[in-house]
C-alpha cells in the first residue's frame, strides 16, 4: 500500500511536470469549457423560449457536469499516449506497484480539474448563475463533480489502454463530445421524444448536472413525473453512477495495465 501511494505520487508529479512544460495545452483545455459556456449561454440562450437569464442559470451546472465528463477523454489520451510511445512498457519493467500509474494519472487529472473548475464557476457567477444554498451546497456540488470526474478518468484510462493506436483513442475521445448532448446538461429533457428522454435520463451526465442544480438551488432541478430513478434522485444517482463506474473500471484498468498488451 505504501509503495502504491509513493509510486502513485511519483506518477502524479510526472503528470504535473508534463502540464507545466506544455502550458498552452493546459490553458486550452481549461478555457474550452468557458468558451462553450459563453457560446451556449449567449448564442443558444438568445434563441430559446426560456428567458436568457434563466437558461444561463440552468446551463452553468450542465457545463460543469459536461466538463467533469471530459475526464473520459483526458484519461483516454493520457493512457493511449503512454501505451503507444513505450512509456507504459518502461513502467511495467520497473519493480513498482501495478496500480500506481493509473492512480497517479487520475489523481493528477483530479487536481488540475479542481483548479480549472474555479475559473469556470467564476465566469458562471459573472453570467448571473448563483449558489442559492450557501457553502454546504457549493461544496457538495464540487464533491459530486470531482467524484464523477475521477470515475470518468478511470473509464478513459481503461479505454486508452485497450486502444489500437493513439489516433484511434483521439478519434474516439473526440466523439465523446456527443455524450453531454444526449443529457440534460445543455437543454431540458422534457421536450425530447420519449426514447431519447429515456436515454438522457439514464445518462450519468444528466444526474450530475441535475445534482449540481439541486445542491446549488438552481432552476431545472425538479424531475418530471415518471422520470427514471437517477433523474428523480440526482444526488444519490450521481454518487451511485460514479461509484459503480469506479467499481468496474478501477479493477479493469489496473488488470489491463498489469497484463499489458501481450
Amino acid at each position: 500500500m505504501s509503495t502504491l501511494l509513493s509510486d502513485g505520487g511519483a506518477v502524479l508529479t510526472r503528470q504535473l511536470q508534463k502540464a507545466r512544460h506544455a502550458p498552452a495545452l493546459l490553458v486550452l483545455t481549461q478555457t474550452m469549457p468557458i468558451t462553450m459556456l459563453l457560446f451556449f449561454g449567449y448564442v443558444f440562450g438568445s434563441a430559446l423560449a426560456m428567458p436568457g437569464a434563466e437558461y444561463r442559470e440552468f446551463l452553468v451546472p450542465g457545463l460543469l457536469a459536461a466538463t467533469a465528463a471530459g475526464g473520459l477523454m483526458t484519461g483516454m489520451f493520457t493512457a493511449a499516449q503512454d501505451a503507444h510511445r513505450g512509456v507504459t512498457d518502461r513502467f511495467r519493467t520497473l519493480p513498482m506497484s501495478r496500480a500506481a500509474v493509473p492512480l497517479g494519472q487520475t489523481a493528477a487529472d483530479l487536481l488540475t480539474t479542481a483548479a480549472g473548475t474555479i475559473p469556470l464557476m467564476l465566469v458562471g457567477l459573472a453570467m448571473g448563475w448563483r449558489v442559492e444554498s450557501g457553502w454546504a451546497g457549493a461544496l457538495g456540488a464540487f464533491g459530486v463533480l470531482l467524484l464523477f470526474r475521477f470515475a470518468m478518468a478511470w473509464v478513459g484510462t481503461y479505454l486508452g489502454l485497450i486502444s489500437a493506436s493513439e489516433e484511434a483513442a483521439g478519434q474516439l475521445g473526440s466523439a465523446t463530445f456527443v455524450l453531454p448532448l444526449l443529457s440534460s446538461a445543455y437543454l431540458p429533457t422534457a421536450g425530447m421524444p420519449s426514447w431519447l428522454r429515456a436515454v438522457a435520463e439514464w445518462n450519468p451526465i444528466s444526474a450530475v448536472a441535475t445534482a449540481v442544480r439541486e445542491l446549488c438551488g438552481n432552476a431545472g432541478a425538479e424531475a418530471a413525473a415518471g422520470a427514471a430513478w437517477p433523474a428523480a434522485h440526482p444526488v444519490a444517482g450521481s454518487v451511485a453512477w460514479s461509484l459503480a463506474l469506479l467499481l468496474v473500471f478501477v479493477p479493469l484498468a489496473t488488470r489491463r495495465f498489469a497484463r499489458g498488451r501481450g
Binding site: D7, A10, Q17, R85, G86, V87, D89, R90, T93
Partner: peptide, 25 residues
C-alpha cells in the same frame, strides 16, 4: 530494459525522466 523505441517521456526533461524512474525504482 532499453526498448526498441526510446521509451522515455518526451514531455519531460532528461533530469525529470531519470528522477521519475529513480523514484519508481
Amino acid at each position: 530494459v532499453t526498448g526498441q523505441y526510446a521509451s522515455v517521456d518526451g514531455d519531460l526533461t532528461g533530469r525529470e525522466n531519470l528522477r521519475l524512474f529513480a523514484r519508481l525504482a
